[in-house]
Computed example of a mutant assay.
Amino acid sequence: MSSPHSKSAAVAAALAALDADRTPERPVYRAAVRALLVALADRVPGRSVEVRVPPYGAVQCVPGPRHTRGTPPNVVEMDPDTWLRVATGRLDWAHAVADGRVRVSGARADLSAYLPV
């Protein structure tokens, strides 16, 4: 956890809960997920990949062709637990994809060069 976003109180509290095998409180979980999504979008601005972490948020990032209508061709989706772990470097991107914890579609959907945030 090296970025100021990942050192937020919400991210720290959510990770502490996950480390204790507890589900973070919903407002904390939401704030942590969104803080790290914003950090990713700030770090890698663009609109060619949509990163979804239901039910808490989604961002568009990565330079390239802009998507404007319908289902984006480049989508990354995962659960909040996986996002917190991948975004903070606690879970390797390649392992998360190989294990099916991260679902990717499209040629630009590899975020490994941008993680952890």
Rank of each mutant, 00 (worst) to 15 (best):
M1F: 10
S3W: 05
P4W: 12
S6Y: 04
S6H: 05
S6P: 00
K7C: 11
S8H: 03
S8P: 00
S8C: 09
A9D: 09
A9I: 08
A10K: 01
A10Y: 04
A10T: 03
A10P: 01
V11Y: 00
A12R: 14
A12Q: 12
A12W: 03
A13N: 07
L15S: 11
A16G: 12
A17G: 08
L18W: 11
L18Q: 09
L18T: 06
A20H: 03
A20D: 14
D21W: 03
R22C: 13
R22W: 06
T23L: 15
T23M: 14
E25Q: 10
R26S: 15
P27D: 15
Y29H: 13
Y29W: 14
A32C: 13
V33M: 12
V33K: 00
R34C: 11
R34H: 07
R34N: 13
R34I: 11
A35S: 13
A35T: 04
L36H: 05
L36D: 12
L36F: 11
L36W: 05
V38C: 12
A39P: 06
A39V: 08
D42V: 08
D42E: 15
R43W: 10
R43N: 14
R43T: 13
V44Y: 05
G46C: 12
G46S: 08
S48P: 06
S48W: 02
V51E: 15
R52P: 00
V53G: 10
P54F: 13
P55Q: 12
G57R: 02
G57F: 08
V59D: 15
V59N: 07
Q60E: 14
V62C: 14
G64L: 12
G64R: 00
P65Q: 13
P65L: 14
R66C: 10
R66Q: 09
H67A: 15
H67Q: 07
T68W: 09
T68C: 14
R69H: 09
G70M: 10
P72W: 08
P72F: 14
P73F: 10
P73H: 05
N74E: 08
V75H: 03
V76I: 08
E77C: 06
M78S: 06
D79S: 06
D79E: 09
P80G: 10
P80S: 09
D81E: 11
D81C: 10
L84R: 03
L84Q: 04
L84D: 06
A87Y: 02
A87I: 01
G89N: 04
G89H: 00
R90A: 15
D92R: 00
D92N: 06
D92Y: 01
A94F: 08
V97G: 02
V97L: 08
V97Y: 01
G100H: 01
G100I: 07
G100Q: 05
G100T: 02
R101T: 01
R101D: 06
R101N: 04
V102E: 00
R103I: 07
V104L: 12
V104F: 05
S105T: 01
A107I: 04
R108C: 09
R108M: 11
D110T: 01
L111D: 06
S112N: 04
A113E: 08
Y114E: 15
Y114D: 15
L115I: 04
P116T: 05
V117M: 10
V117R: 00
